[in-house]
Design a protein around this nucleic acid. Sequence first.
DNA 1: TAAGCCCTATATCATTTGATAGGTTTATTG
DNA 2: CAATAAACCTATCAAATGATATAGGGCTTA
Lengths: 228, 228
Amino acid sequence: MIDRLLSAPLSPLEVSPEPETTRQRILRVGMACFAQEGFAGATTRMIASAAGVTLPVIAYHFGNKDGLHLACAEEIVEQHRRRLLPVAAAARCAADDGSLTADQARIWLEKILATLVAAITADDEQRLATDFVLRELSEQGPGYHLLYEELWKPGMELVAELIAIARGRSATVEGDRVGAMMLLASLSSLTRDEPVASAFLGGSASEEPHRTLIGECARRMLSGLIAA
Amino acid sequence: MIDRLLSAPLSPLEVSPEPETTRQRILRVGMACFAQEGFAGATTRMIASAAGVTLPVIAYHFGNKDGLHLACAEEIVEQHRRRLLPVAAAARCAADDGSLTADQARIWLEKILATLVAAITADDEQRLATDFVLRELSEQGPGYHLLYEELWKPGMELVAELIAIARGRSATVEGDRVGAMMLLASLSSLTRDEPVASAFLGGSASEEPHRTLIGECARRMLSGLIAA
DNA sequence: TAAGCCCTATATCATTTGATAGGTTTATTG
DNA sequence: CAATAAACCTATCAAATGATATAGGGCTTA
């Protein structure tokens, strides 16, 4: 996996003229290692070796292991912002407006779910970023607060609000927050426990037909969650 | 957390006449450490210290760190078997019988969900066992195969079968398996990401009113999942 | 060309961690 | 009582790990 990332340093989208800098390479490899091994499990030597540099280079660019981890978290917040913010911002705008009907809220929720399904069944780099976030939320390493405050919490609060509106309430109650957590959690385990999912489903969750089935199940569960 | 376990070595159920053996104590503390810190994060010294013994005692009873971890997994398989097997076996018996109606299957699923909600909102010891399992499924340490084959896989296959019957099919299709995974995953994150859940919900998921709300959301999502 | 800075490598340190060698105590047994 | 084995401890080792002191190369700039 890490080898594959090394040999494909650039996403097909960015036709970057200048080659990837050492700092960017360490960041990318570090994200992969932390996502796969966890903060304690990923060693600085492992990351340095996979990035094709020596140990002090990491210290030079990021101070220490904590700094690298934090930098990975910051990078991911930026990445996910670019990807998810468009739909999230539009939905929040509509929700704050107060003019959202229950049906419209439901459509927004389905759109968000589709975006998240796409995120966890996307290319390796994006999936590793997602894994990094999910692992960090349970490990609480150096990047925890950043990811929780900047990514997880606002996203979850938006979903909870939309659920409330979809269920005909104007304000969120405790149950909406529980529902939001559980709904999105149903998706997260598919990437967090990818080996388990692959073994049980007989193939990667990011490939068809699983990709389609996951979206379908998510919509069904959402439907039940907001049913009257 | 570990301190609390140390000071409360016996579950209120078992009025054991003989005190806990050293081996049992190490096993219990080890489960807690592995559940909280992961296999790499939990050090043998940490476990030995928390159990009130020295390092070689672990080696004496379990060979090495891997052996202790595996023994924890075996202990947990036994524990969960005692707790979950009654309902699981009855459900499987009914499912294999072939005479299960869709409504009956749905009732079985609700019963299983209620059992799992109880498991993740139960006392510390049982929750730590659950955390151990969930962490191991994503980390794939020494105890992975045992937990996957003996606990996770059979349970998930049962749920998938029941979902298929509840949806009016006689055999499970890929979508039922995806649905089973996602349905149970919605519960797992509440204990795996307990700090996140507590921060977001403003209180432990194992306390009211969250306990009730979790069960309610689970039933709603199940309802949507098996809806025609 | 010389000075200075950015970036990277070699070599090394102190700590942590898993493991073990050898001795001590306690209980059991012939 | 002597002998044996089980259970545990002290002391220590070797490997792994995060970190760093020091030096070298390449580039710009004066």
